[in-house]
Amino acid sequence: MDAIVLQILNGLDKGGAYALIALGLTLIFGTLGVVNFAHGALFMLGAFCAVSFKKLLTLAEVTKVPSDLGFPVTKEVFYLEKWFGQTGLTIIDFAVPLAILISIPVMILIGLAMERGLVRHFYKRPHAEQILVTFGLAIVLQEIIKAIFGANPIPTPAPQFVSGSANIGEWLGLGQFVVYPWWRLIYLLFSLSVLAAVFSFLRFTTWGMVVRAGMQDRETVGLLGINIQKRFTIVFALAAVVAGLAGVMYTPILPPDYHMGMEFLVLSFVVVVVGGMGSLPGAVAAGFLLGILQSFASMNEVKSIFPGIDQIIIYLVAVIILLVRPRGLLGRKGVMET
């Protein structure tokens, strides 16, 4: 029982990341009809927003102080510490959560630039060309990041006071052994609230209603005098923000490097396919489902029966789903049938 609860919890945070990326992919696909292979790169850019924000905060004044060793020793003092003392250090400690504030405008700008500059010219082109051009864009973004930040993963820890583990077992009355890192719990809650925000935005606002109507029948909405194109551009930016936020908050769990986006992209596509192309709830459900399945598959008990299952479980599920339910779990008829 303990083990099962633990595995479900372990799967949830990764599932949260999958769900957020897959949600953005589905949004873009449903509105613009574009298959965005650069979405993983957006996730990575979000993570590097956090990294560069942290770098910005930890800018340090380098002074040479005389020492007993006979030569002056360089000493680094963070400007923030120098100016604000203890408060400054606390701000540095909270770099990752604070980076959210920075990443939102940055990701909006990146999203708008991408849509206006590139994706918009590919609406009428075949899907193969959309895939290829966004794939090229992903390579370019990834290589730019590599040129700036280097190829090594950059550890970006979570704030000190949530670095420990939450004793979830005691809360649920399951005993001492079910512990879960605080940050992962926060990530889970964070992803759930972002998902809730996006869904309620689309469901309960007039703006969102128009977007949903546009997803159903773009032409009719256009005939009603609504500039649906403009709204879809904003939806693209929204999807970029969602992916970026997923990346920002993921940095303490996985130190970001330049190719993290591609790894997540491949999995997120599988998630979208399993959930059903064009179905937002499907994407979210499949994200969490595959996250949990993956963590179950990496249990030792399971691995001893099916060796290597943890490496391939997601792809295996995708293959089975596509063969049994070709539209995915919650896919609708008529969406991307060909």
């Binding site: 491949v266 599988v270 396919v273 295996l316 995708a318 293959v319 596509l322 063969l323």
Partner: peptide, 18 residues
């Protein structure tokens, strides 16, 4: 090949990763 278009691309990608 039971699927075509984007599904086919993703399926082949999944198999290769596997």
């Amino acid at each position: 090949l039971r699927r075509s278009g984007i599904y086919f691309s993703i399926l082949t990608l999944a198999f290769a990763q596997m």
